[in-house]
């Protein structure tokens, strides 16, 4: 559904941070902007960009890293 590079682009857009500050191994606690509200922005942007391809679920809401998000989205 989404590859790692696309997800990193989307997360950096949602959080309003430089793409270079997000790596494939990044976790939410390492990025100040990736707090509860930041994560909400990520989910909202995912829904906007992926539309029908995007299946909302509670696991996505509790994901705390790029890796976890990718796993949830590509299940």
């Amino acid at each position: 559904m989404i590859n790692e590079s696309e997800l990193i682009d989307l997360v950096s857009d949602a959080l309003g941070v430089n793409k270079d500050s997000i790596r494939p191994e990044s976790q939410s606690h390492e990025i100040p902007e990736w707090d509860s509200l930041g994560h909400l922005s990520i989910l909202s942007l995912l829904q906007q960009k992926l539309g029908d391809r995007y299946q909302e679920n509670q696991e996505l809401a509790s994901a705390t890293s790029i890796k976890e998000l990718l796993e949830c989205l590509n299940k």
């Binding site: 994560h39 909400l40 679920n57 509670q58 509790s62």
Partner: peptide, 10 residues
């Protein structure tokens, strides 16, 4: 404490 993203998903 509020987990905003999880509540939004709820």
């Amino acid at each position: 404490h509020m987990s905003g993203a999880e509540i939004w998903m709820f």
